[in-house]
Amino acid sequence: MSYLVIKTLHVVAMVVWLSGMIFVPLTLSRMAAGGGVDAKQVAHLRAGFAMLVTPAMLAVWGLGLYLAYDVGLFGDAWLHAKLTLVVAMSGLHGVLSGQLRQMSGARLAKPAPLVLKLHWLVGLLLVGIVGLVIVKPF
């Protein structure tokens, strides 16, 4: 497959992943502000997260690492900075996944404070990641 096709799939997967990473915490924070989360609704959110958002994250990593290997970018410092931010984003994905599991099983009444602000963190990381890719400052 050509470089441009893989790059397109990488960007599409990234859009799907980060859409979920912003949508889910935002929905949870709205639910919490509206009087508490409903385990059944969270179970629906969790199903969508597991079916769409997690595979998108795996695709982002797989395609991204392949691209970096194919083009020979592993010597570039900006890529290492970007990878650090994407590892942090993946960690937030894990936090969200664990919280969704607990809430859908009614073992947690409301999301942790971090989850209520998580969409802001995702936005900040996104600015850093896209900035590093476009500007390549070092």
Binding site: L58, G91, G94, G98
Partner: peptide
Amino acid sequence: PVHGLAFVLYIVALVDNFSG
């Protein structure tokens, strides 16, 4: 890169478990 991917999968699974 394969090890990098494996490392990330481990970190995500780790945080997922701890967060649970």
